[in-house]
């Protein structure tokens, strides 16, 4: 297999130099477009659901049209086993994770940066303490910890998402700590201190904003993917959103009995929605990582 390398004429290369987006790797561009499409679909669907702009009433049963296929009787994605419109239910299902997911992200980022700055900037004993805390959090499988909390408190999805956020914080903290250590190696922080900048300005403006924002953006994207995974898993297990309110997780669960009989669609449609959405967030995170932090090789 021959690999081709060809040199562009100099005018074209100067053109690339001028426009940053022309430097993006083809694969990253693909990921980026896909990810942005998914994110905007999710956001639009969230607002459609919030303002109740759905093609059908998601909880209205239509026993004459149970499990009809795609496009039948005006149901764009068909209906489930009770004749409820799948598309409407899937759009409404986004309500189950969207705001809670954002909460998880906010907590993971703020708490994670806090820990990261503590251990990276101050180091020493504080670093040891933060590392201990991170290891402690990592000791629990996330779902087990959530089940423990569920058993103890029967909490709301928002409280569960606080736990998801807290358990994501060590990842963010480690990345920020590494970045700060890298900056320390380059004497960036010493020189800012020597210049007489106040500590809060160094931390918030020069470390977090100028040097860590790409890390935070990437982690936010990946965090949303994980929040979706958690919410759907919990709803599937019966600890999240309860029927008849739809969530992608409980839709898969509810459709699973019919799946065994060969009626794939009511269960598969939300499952595919989960897959494409999580894939979108992951690929977006990856593409952003390559674009903002530089692609390896």
């Amino acid at each position: 297999m021959y690999t081709e390398f060809s040199q562009l004429p100099i005018e074209k290369r100067q053109d690339i130099e001028k426009h940053w987006w022309k430097k993006i790797h083809r694969m990253d561009l693909l990921y980026l477009c896909y990810g942005i499409t998914i994110v905007s679909l999710v956001v639009i669907s969230y607002f459609l659901g919030a303002f109740n702009l759905l093609p059908f009433d998601p909880e209205e049963m239509d026993l004459d049209n149970m499990m009809v296929g795609i496009g039948a009787e005006g149901h764009i994605l068909g209906t489930d086993f009770m004749g409820r419109d799948l598309l409407s239910r899937m759009i409404l299902g986004i309500q189950a994770y969207f705001l809670p997911g954002l909460l998880a992200i906010v907590i993971a980022l703020s708490f994670g940066s806090f820990l990261g700055v503590l251990s990276g900037f101050y180091g020493g004993r504080i670093d040891t303490g933060v590392t201990y805390f991170n290891n402690l959090v990592d000791s629990f499988p996330r779902l087990v910890l959530i089940l423990l909390v569920v058993a103890a408190f029967k909490p709301d999805i928002y409280y569960i998402m606080i736990i998801v956020g807290l358990t994501n914080a060590p990842v963010v903290a480690a990345l920020i700590k590494n970045k700060i250590q890298f900056l320390k190696q380059k004497n960036f922080i010493e020189s800012s201190i020597a210049m007489g900048l106040p500590t809060h300005l160094i931390i918030f403006k020069h470390i977090l904003w100028y040097n860590c924002r790409s890390i935070l953006i990437i982690q936010a994207t990946l965090g949303m993917g994980e929040a979706i995974l958690m919410e759907t898993s919990l709803s599937y297990l019966g600890f999240g959103v309860q029927e008849p309110t739809p969530s992608w997780g409980n839709m898969v669960q509810a459709g699973s009995n019919y799946l065994m009989q060969g009626n794939f669609w009511p269960s598969t449609a939300p499952a595919l929605a989960i897959m494409f959405t999580i894939l979108g967030f992951y690929l977006l995170g990856d593409a952003l990582n390559h674009i903002l932090e530089g692609r390896k090789s």
Partner: peptide
């Protein structure tokens, strides 16, 4: 000048 190369790297 070499402006284009096809190479079977493997």
């Amino acid at each position: 000048r070499i402006i284009s190369v096809k190479k079977d790297l493997n």
